[in-house]
Design a protein around this nucleic acid. Structure first.
Length: 491
RNA sequence: CGGGGUGUAGCGUAGCCUGGUAUCGCGCCACAUUUGGGAUGUGGAGGUCGUAGGUUCGAAUCCUGCCACCCCGACCA
């Protein structure tokens, strides 16, 4: 495998792109800005989906599916929503092609123009709230707790595999509630689920917070988010949960009758995470050897590599390999025996390191004789010789350790990269030289936030939840401030 | 969309300035020897040189348009 090697420390985005391709996660398609998620990458996404889906269902949500197309007029019903998305919508104007008799080419049939254009969904609030109108009459119909797994399209100017693609996969939850309190509780509950998933499953520490007005979702009263910190010191928004107030209920005239027989608008939330999480996963743990996957998401958790020279050895070794395979599989571990005989063990080691398989077990004739196995962990590259008899209790434990270790490593990195600053010089110095989050006072105005963005390219990632209150002065204007917020340069 | 760069076999590339039908490595196929950290030998297959035009006896090479990707901006829940 003669792949181009790009060092993480020298060219982070080159390294990232290279890794996505070399580890067989995804590739560019023939369509501008759109990617093909390859089987190995999709397997990781499926594991993410399964974990999230289980958590959604445990908290009472059901899956449903709404159309890909949204009538154009729906978008204009909620003013800030259309402002937020208008510039990046794909529009369907015709429904038929025909053969041009003059050129012999396939052309759009001008006679097949749609009365009303259809928008390819960039998000589904409008079509869903238009539907909820018919579903909700009484307080007895509430809450409605629905999630959909879908693809959406946002016509971004510049794309990057997984992080920002024109079409991407995601889930979007859309809930309807009788009271604001209940909707807010839902918004926060989903934020907690995202944070828990990111930390426990992805092993990516996140900061929970609320967005400033500038960064808020188009149509929301409050946007909560989880923010991760990537290895190059840039922040990545990994998930959002919005309290939509009654904006969409009013726009789509969704009312319910209370127990007291009064008519009220419904309260709404929406929340989502996307295939961008794949980007977060890659950029949180991986190194120059390739991907590093947390055991909880690795499609292959343990790979067994048999080593043999002669035919007689092959049988002996394979017999053990198969036995270990069966033993681990019985424990619910995802395990694979790589018995390809046209490549050397060294080649396979490198390949599974590239693919981020957490644990590698090698068995050769020597091991068979000694009753041992050679175990290598991907995260530390540490190798050890274990008694084969210990396999069944040591390997599950090792997988847990690896999961813990890569989380801790990412957490340590983040802790080292949150810099509290009090002056503008310190602010710029932290961004340029230390990288990561900058915790500083801000006077709370959108104008100041804009100005800071202009001067430093940093945006407010969030105002952390349970943020300690302290008096201070805005790092730019010197105006009084009650709390610090987190700034960073972000993806 | 602006500035810069790139596009040659599955991958990575040489050739381009100075036009004459494409180089090398990896991978692939066959056989043999191999296999405890990216094996070796021998033989073989694989190319509309991103794309569409133009100049020319002749274009990967020169000219023009277009497309895609990368980097920096602008843009971006």
């Amino acid at each position: 495998m003669d792949v181009k090697k790009i060092k993480r420390s020298e060219d982070y985005s080159g390294w990232y792109n290279n890794l996505v391709k070399n580890a067989d996660l995804a590739e560019h398609s023939d369509v501008k800005g759109c990617m093909i998620i390859k089987p190995y990458g999709y397997a990781i996404w499926e594991k993410m989906q399964a974990e999230l889906d289980r958590r959604f269902k445990e908290t009472g949500h059901q899956n449903a599916y709404f159309p890909l197309f949204i009538p154009k007029s729906f978008f204009s019903k909620e003013a800030s929503h259309v402002d937020g998305f208008a510039k990046e919508c794909a529009v369907v104007t015709h429904y038929r092609l025909k053969n041009d008799p003059e050129t012999g080419q396939i052309v759009v049939d001008p006679d097949a123009k749609l009365e009303e254009e259809l928008i390819v969904r960039p998000t589904s609030e409008t079509i869903i709230w238009s539907t909820y109108r018919n579903w909700i009459q009484s307080y007895r119909d509430l809450p409605i707790l629905i999630n959909q797994w879908a693809n959406v399209v946002r016509w971004e100017m510049r794309t990057r595999l997984f992080l920002r693609t024109t079409e991407f996969l995601w889930q979007e939850g859309h809930t309807a509630h009788a009271t604001a309190e209940e909707a807010i509780a839902e918004t926060k509950q989903m934020l907690e689920i995202y944070a828990d998933f990111a930390e426990k499953i992805m092993a990516v520490p996140v900061i929970k917070g609320v967005k400033s007005a500038n960064e808020r979702f188009a149509g929301a009263l409050d946007t909560f988010c989880i923010e991760g910190l990537m290895q190059d010191g840039k922040a990545l928004q990994m998930g959002t949960s919005h309290f939509l107030g009654q904006n969409f209920a009013k726009a789509f005239d969704v009312k319910y009758v209370t127990r007291e027989n009064k008519s009220e608008y419904v309260w709404a939330t929406s929340w989502g995470v996307s295939t961008r999480l794949m980007g977060a996963l890659i950029m949180s743990h991986s190194d120059d050897e390739g991907l590093v996957l947390p055991p909880n998401l690795a499609p292959i958790q343990v790979v067994i590599i048999p080593i043999f020279r002669k035919e007689g050895e092959r049988e002996l070794v394979m017999e053990k390999a198969d036995a270990y395979f069966a033993a681990l599989k019985k424990l619910g571990i995802s395990v694979k025996v790589d018995d390809r005989d046209n490549m050397t063990p060294g080649f396979k080691y490198a390949e599974y390191e590239l693919k981020g398989v957490p644990v590698r077990i090698a068995i050769g004739p020597r091991d068979v004789q000694n009753g041992t196995i050679e175990v290598a962990r991907r995260d530390t590259k540490e190798k050890m010789v274990l008694q084969a008899a210990d396999l069944e209790h040591k390997i599950p434990h090792l997988l847990e350790q690896i999961q813990q270790n890569i989380y801790q490593k990412a957490l340590d990195y983040r802790t080292e990269h949150i810099h509290a600053v009090n002056t503008w010089d310190e602010f710029i110095d932290a961004l340029d030289n230390k990288t990561g989050f900058v915790s500083s006072h801000w006077d709370g105005s959108s104008e100041t936030e804009e100005k800071i963005k202009e001067l430093s390219k940093a945006t407010i990632r969030c105002i952390p939840l349970n943020n300690p209150q302290e008096d201070g002065k805005c790092v730019l204007t010197g105006n009084p401030s009650k709390e610090r917020v987190l700034f960073a340069r972000a993806y």
